[in-house]
Design a protein around this nucleic acid. Structure first.
Length: 315
DNA sequence: TACCAGGATGCTA
DNA sequence: TAGCATCATGGT
C-alpha cells in the first residue's frame, strides 16, 4: 500500500467528471479504477465541512506496490503536475476579466480544481469515446462493461479492457448484441486499423499535437470531438479542448456577448430549437470562442475544459 | 410521442 | 467547403 498526501485531488469528482467510465465507488470513500488490464483500489476520506472548495488536502491510499505506483499510477493520475499554478492563473484571470464567462469560470474552478486529468490507456480511450457518441454517460458505462465481459481477459471477479486483437479476431459481427448500434462498424474497423498500423502509445506520446489529432481522425468513427478526448485523456495532450453538446451550450451561453448573440439569432430562423442553433455554429466558430476566452490557459486549456464540463453536468 | 445523448459519415451543391 | 440527412439504441 502506498499512502500519499496530495493536493488538488478528489477521487469522487474525478469519477463523475466524464473522463473515465470504468471507475466505481462500491462504498463511501473506497474507489476501484480499471485501466486496460489493470485494477486499482484506492481510499480517500474527506471532512465534509471542506467539501467543494478544491484545495482540501487529504490522505489517499493506493492499494498497490511502490513499484506499481511509480511505474504506472502516479503518471496515470497526473500527480507530478502543479495544479495549484493553474488555479492561480484562473484567479488572476477572473480578477482581471469581468464578464459572464469569467464568473462561470470562477465557479467551475471552485468546483473542479481538484479534478486531475487522467492519462489513460490510448486504445481504451479510442474505443470508449467512439462508443460515447450520441449516448448518455450511464449508457456508455453499460456498453463498455458489456464489451469487457465479452472480450476482456477474465480475472477473479472482473474483466480487463479488450485488446484490439480480441475484437478484430472476432470479425465484423463479433461486437453485435451489445447495444452499440451504428458504432459496431467503427469499433471493429478501428481495431483492425490499430493492429495494421502497429503504432505504439509511446510513439503517439512523442508526436506533435496536430499530427496526433490528424492521425486519430484517420480512424473510421473518430472525428474532431472524439480525437480531442483521446488526445486529452489518453495521450496526455492537456491543451486539447473537446467540444461536445455541453461545451457548445456553455461556450455560447457564457462566453458569447449579448450583442453577438443578437446578431447570430437575427440571421437564423427564430423558430429553430436551441440545440439546432448551437449546431449551426461550426467547429471553427467554437474554436474562435475558445481562443478569445481561454488564452490565459494556453498549454493546459484541456484541464480548464474539464472544470467547466464537470461543473456543468454536476450543477 | 417527440426529443436528446461527451458525433461521425457520406452525399449534394 | 458547407449544409444536410442518416446512422442504432436507451432514456426522459
Amino acid at each position: 500500500m502506498v499512502s500519499k498526501t496530495i493536493p488538488y485531488f478528489n477521487l469522487r469528482k474525478i469519477m463523475n467528471s466524464g473522463q473515465i467510465f470504468r471507475m466505481y465507488e462500491p462504498e463511501a470513500g473506497r474507489f476501484v479504477v480499471f485501466s486496460g488490464n489493470k485494477r486499482l483500489e484506492l481510499c480517500q476520506h474527506f471532512d465534509d465541512s471542506e467539501k467543494g472548495h478544491g484545495t482540501e488536502i487529504g490522505t489517499v491510499e493506493f492499494m498497490c506496490s511502490q513499484k506499481e505506483f511509480d511505474e504506472y499510477w502516479e503518471n496515470y493520475f497526473d500527480l507530478k503536475r502543479n495544479y495549484g499554478a493553474i488555479v492561480q492563473t484562473a484567479k488572476n484571470h477572473y480578477q482581471k476579466v469581468k464578464n459572464s464567462g469569467a464568473e462561470f469560470l470562477k465557479k467551475s474552478c471552485e468546483y473542479g480544481a481538484d479534478i486531475r486529468v487522467l492519462k489513460q490507456d490510448i486504445w481504451e480511450m479510442m474505443i470508449s469515446f467512439i462508443i460515447s457518441q450520441q449516448k448518455q454517460i450511464p449508457s456508455i458505462r453499460k456498453c463498455i462493461e458489456a464489451l469487457c465481459e465479452r472480450f476482456g481477459e477474465k480475472h477473479s471477479s472482473w474483466y480487463g479492457f479488450p485488446t484490439p486483437e480480441s475484437i478484430a479476431s472476432a470479425g465484423p459481427d463479433g461486437v453485435k448484441g451489445l447495444s452499440l448500434g451504428y458504432r459496431e462498424r467503427y469499433i471493429y474497423e478501428t481495431a483492425v486499423k490499430y493492429l495494421t498500423d502497429g503504432i505504439s502509445d509511446d510513439k503517439l506520446r512523442t508526436m506533435p499535437a496536430d499530427e496526433v489529432k490528424k492521425y486519430l481522425c484517420s480512424f473510421t468513427g473518430i472525428g474532431d470531438k472524439v480525437a480531442d478526448c483521446v488526445a486529452l485523456f489518453g495521450v496526455g495532450l492537456v491543451d486539447s479542448f473537446p467540444i461536445d453538446v455541453h461545451i457548445k451550450d456553455i461556450l455560447y451561453r457564457e462566453f458569447v456577448s449579448d450583442k453577438t448573440k443578437n446578431r447570430i439569432e437575427k440571421n437564423i430562423a427564430n423558430d429553430i430549437s436551441h440545440k439546432k442553433l448551437l449546431d449551426r455554429l461550426s467547429y471553427s466558430d467554437y474554436m474562435q470562442i475558445i481562443n478569445d476566452n481561454f488564452s490565459a490557459f494556453d498549454g493546459v486549456k484541456g484541464i480548464v475544459q474539464q472544470w467547466i464540463f464537470a461543473y456543468e453536468i454536476a450543477k
